[in-house]
Amino acid sequence: MIDAIQQLGQRSISFVLRLGAAGTMLISALFTKPTLKWARLVLLQVYQLGVLSLPIIVVAGLFIGMVLGLQGYNVLINYGAEQSLGTMVALSLLRELGPVVTALLFAGRAGSALTAEVGLMKATEQLSSMEMMAVDPLKRIIAPRFWGGVLAMPMLAFMFSLIAIWGGSVVGVNWKGIDSGGFWSVMQASVDVKLDIVYGFIKSAVFAFVIVWVALYNGYYAKPSSAGISEATTRTVVNASLLVLALDFILTIFMYG
């Protein structure tokens, strides 16, 4: 009994400690003075995290859009409302699936890579040798990765939504024969720039922030061993995905509730 209470206390203290460490890391990453050299490092990370994630985003978006189109068509045709397929596909993608699925893929593709990279740097003591050379690893390693990820993910989400809507239109218009004028004009009548596109962008920016933060924290504070790195990588993907889904619910309440 006493043991259990002790454990509870220990857990909560270590939770607060971890939160504090993550917060300190975040603040030092956020308030890095941008220089030209630093901008180059960010650009490299946009390449690593964004451009290299592009194939999986494009392929996943295409398939998700086509599945949405097909399933939506099969339901809507029963009500003679197949013209509304465009609305259904566009709204579900812009509001929910675009940001969320991109975030989940991003957590799996880029978040895990970030954690493993930073964790291995720590395990091989590259981070401590940087400190010996009076280079702050938070500024040299963490900050560019943070900003690179936060910049790259919303762009990926836009591309995901666009490709998926195109996939839905391919299935709906070209295969199932919905009138293309109706498909697009009904969609245009019901999609709103602020309510759908801007809010979707806000969602994906928040998700990017959370994913990159979780990934970098887990890498930076990983146990410096091969088992520790694998554990940290797993934790990144699991925690980031769960946080994204939970945050999505909360954001949706505020935006559309």
Binding site: L54, S161, D196, I197
Partner: peptide, 19 residues
């Protein structure tokens, strides 16, 4: 190219999807 493509995607979303 990545940034250009994403800007293009945004413009297309705004013009074509949101009308």
């Amino acid at each position: 190219c990545f940034i250009l493509a994403s800007c293009l995607a945004l413009v297309l979303l705004v013009m074509q999807v949101a009308g």
